[in-house]
Design a protein around this nucleic acid. Structure first.
Length: 414
RNA sequence: GCGGUUGUAGCCAAGUGGUUAAGGCUCCGGUUUGUGGUACCGGUAUUCGUGGGUUCAAUUCCCAUCAGCCGCCCCA
């Protein structure tokens, strides 16, 4: 009797051989875009002190409230990271990166964990690719980061991407906005959905994102619409947002200003943005980001403005076009393993990909394997060839086979 | 956390309250043990996600549970 099969935990995925080329190719392509802009990769631990996320991401967010994988170990509360920025900022402070020349440009990639109900494009263990630009509070920095995100999507040949932009103002603005919004919404509270009533206390700004028709209708027109249009943002925030839009206009980058787009993490200030794809289902956001001018301070570092974004790798996988893996150059058909290994090593040192048949089966069988592996050439190295210091090289597409002396064959590869 | 829906081999998939659970692809073996791709032949599910119940009898009906998917919530 065999034991029961153990299933993978809910909301996790294996990256199988059939996908791994696309998976790592995607990460390599995205990384290359950022490296080309002088961003440097940083890798931080997958788990951190729980308080890092409570303080950093914000304890009014759903992520912190109900989605964190936390556990106690020797009296310490540890949490599997639900997002990447908090850990990067922690390292920035703790490792003294804030003393390197500003701005500091970083990117990261790795697994994140949120305890949520899985569905298409949303796993419990998922992967993000993100970038952070620390030490600059200018609309030019905002533009660099947004353009960078779009460049990554372009490099991945992702079409149908839309840029949504907004500003949530300075940190002071955000507080004022929040209170003013509550004042406007308070009279309507009884008409609103349960979620909105809850949000009213916990995170009123998120109410604007509500999808319930009755709420949506209310927020779309009348007092709320007027309020959004006429809210007295600080001159600083308005000026900065205008400059950013001006840069995008000049570059003919299409965008939509969405006054109701607010993002779920508490640390955002100023510019926020999202890139969405019309080719995904309900989880249409492929990239989300924004400015977080207070986070470094909140986590105990020097006052440091910053902006960043993150992309969902699983969602990118559904959209990206990555070149096929290169074909296998040589499949060595042999009954002389020692000779075959030596030849394989020499071929590989010249950059060729080589697989050695280890089965000792008849050459017909080995050739069939060569075919199945989609090798371009079979190299036949049997007793006769070893004696003559030769190889037979057969092009599997044409069937043409010819003999070379081993040295001539290697020399021909260059 | 809520609502809906699905679950037969590695993949796709037919099927029925009652002897051996179609078929296709893949894989493995053979015809062909120093020459592949085609063709032909053969093999691979003691069992229908798992557990329990109803029944003389369940893969089929019922319940629970697990997992996938869709939507809400939230977000990448």
């Amino acid at each position: 009797m065999s034991s029961p099969v153990i299933q993978r935990p809910k909301g996790t995925q294996d990256i199988l051989p059939a996908q791994s080329h696309q998976w790592f190719g995607l990460l390599a392509t995205a990384s290359a875009v950022l490296e080309a802009a002088n961003y440097t990769r940083i890798d931080t631990p997958i788990f951190e002190a729980t308080s890092l996320f409570e303080r950093g991401v914000g304890d009014s967010t759903d992520i912190v409230n109900k989605e964190m994988y936390s556990f106690e170990k020797e009296g310490r509360s540890i949490t599997l990271r639900p997002e990447g920025t908090a850990g990067v900022v922690r390292a920035y402070i703790e490792q003294g990166l804030h003393r390197s020349p500003k701005p500091v440009r970083l990117y990261y990639a790795g697994a994140m964990f949120r305890y949520e109900r899985p569905q298409e494009g949303r796993q419990r263990q998922f992967h993000q690719f993100g970038s952070e630009l620390l030490g600059l509070d200018t609309p030019q920095a905002d533009a660099e980061v947004i353009l960078q995100a779009m460049a990554v999507l372009k490099a991945l040949k992702i079409e149908g991407v839309e840029l949504h932009l907004n500003t949530v103002g300075t940190p002071e603005d955000r507080v004022r906005f929040r209170e003013a919004l509550k004042a406007v919404l308070a009279p309507h509270l009884p008409e609103l959905c349960e979620d909105c009533q809850r949000r009213f206390e916990q995170n009123p700004i998120r109410m604007l994102d509500c999808k319930v028709p009755t709420c949506k209708t209310l927020y779309d027109g009348g007092a709320v619409e007027t309020f959004l249009r006429t809210f007295d943002w600080s001159a600083e925030a308005q000026e900065s947002f205008k400059t950013l839009c001006g840069i995008l206009d000049k570059l003919n980058v299409a965008y939509t200003v969405n006054r109701r787009m607010v993002r779920g993490l508490d640390y955002y200030t100023g510019t926020v943005f999202e890139l969405t794809s019309n080719q995904l289902g309900a989880q249409s956001a492929v990239c989300g980001g924004g400015r977080y001018n207070r986070l470094v301070e909140t986590l105990g570092g020097p006052e440091t403005p910053a902006i960043g974004w993150a992309m969902g790798v699983e969602r990118l996988m559904k959209l990206a076009t990555i070149a096929e893996p290169p074909a296998l150059d040589f499949y060595i058909v042999t009954n002389q393993p020692a000779e075959a290994f030596a030849l394989a090593e020499q071929l590989r040192s010249k950059g060729a990909s080589v697989e050695v048949d280890l089965t000792h089966k008849p050459f017909g069988k080995q050739l069939a394997q060569a075919d199945k592996r989609k090798a371009v050439n079979a190299v036949i190295l049997g007793d006769a060839e070893v004696i003559k210091k030769q190889v037979e090289v057969k092009n599997l597409a044409s069937g043409v086979q010819s003999a070379f002396s081993t040295t001539a064959f290697l020399a021909s590869l260059k």
